Lab assay of single mutants.
Amino acid sequence: MISNAKIARINELAAKAKAGVITEEEKAEQQKLRQEYLK
């Protein structure tokens, strides 16, 4: 099960992506976390 901290990070990265200020490194982290969440 995914931790609350990881869910919070997913939401934080989603907000950054929506604002258009996300880095390529953060995009990769976001994809990794989303895949983990979906498992």
Rank of each mutant, 00 (worst) to 15 (best):
M1H: 11
M1A: 12
M1R: 13
M1L: 12
M1W: 09
M1D: 09
M1I: 14
I2T: 09
I2G: 06
I2F: 12
I2E: 10
I2W: 07
I2Q: 07
S3F: 04
S3G: 10
S3R: 06
S3C: 14
N4E: 14
N4H: 14
N4Y: 04
N4L: 15
N4D: 13
N4I: 15
A5F: 04
A5Q: 12
A5N: 10
K6E: 04
K6F: 14
K6G: 05
I7R: 13
I7E: 05
I7M: 12
I7D: 02
I7C: 15
A8R: 14
A8W: 05
A8F: 05
A8P: 03
A8Y: 05
R9H: 02
R9S: 01
R9L: 03
R9G: 01
R9V: 01
R9P: 00
I10G: 03
I10Q: 03
I10M: 15
I10P: 00
N11F: 15
N11H: 14
N11G: 07
N11I: 15
N11Y: 15
N11C: 15
N11Q: 14
N11V: 13
N11T: 10
E12I: 06
E12G: 03
E12W: 04
E12Y: 07
L13S: 01
L13D: 00
L13W: 01
L13G: 00
A14W: 13
A14N: 12
A14Q: 10
A14L: 09
A14S: 08
A14H: 07
A15N: 07
A15S: 07
A15F: 09
K16G: 00
K16W: 02
K16A: 04
K16F: 03
K16R: 12
K16Y: 03
A17I: 04
A17E: 14
A17N: 04
K18F: 06
K18S: 08
K18T: 07
A19T: 07
A19Y: 08
A19H: 06
A19G: 05
A19P: 00
A19V: 07
G20T: 02
G20Y: 02
G20R: 04
G20N: 04
G20M: 04
G20D: 03
V21S: 12
V21E: 07
I22S: 02
I22P: 02
I22V: 02
I22R: 02
I22Y: 02
T23S: 10
T23C: 04
T23N: 05
E24M: 06
E24T: 06
E25I: 07
E25H: 05
E25L: 11
E25N: 06
E25K: 06
E26F: 00
E26I: 01
E26T: 00
E26L: 01
E26G: 00
E26C: 03
K27P: 00
K27E: 12
K27M: 11
K27Y: 11
A28K: 13
A28F: 09
A28P: 00
E29H: 01
E29I: 03
E29V: 02
E29Y: 03
E29N: 01
Q30I: 13
Q30W: 15
Q30H: 15
Q30S: 09
Q30K: 04
Q31S: 10
Q31N: 11
Q31T: 12
Q31M: 13
Q31H: 11
Q31I: 12
Q31P: 00
Q31E: 15
Q31C: 15
K32P: 00
K32Q: 11
K32T: 09
K32S: 07
L33A: 02
L33K: 01
L33Q: 01
L33R: 02
R34C: 15
R34V: 14
R34P: 00
R34T: 12
R34K: 08
Q35E: 14
Q35S: 10
Q35A: 13
E36M: 07
E36A: 05
E36H: 05
E36F: 05
E36R: 06
Y37I: 13
Y37S: 06
Y37T: 06
Y37K: 04
L38D: 13
L38A: 13
L38T: 10
L38S: 11
L38C: 14
K39P: 09
K39T: 14
K39G: 14
K39D: 14
K39L: 13
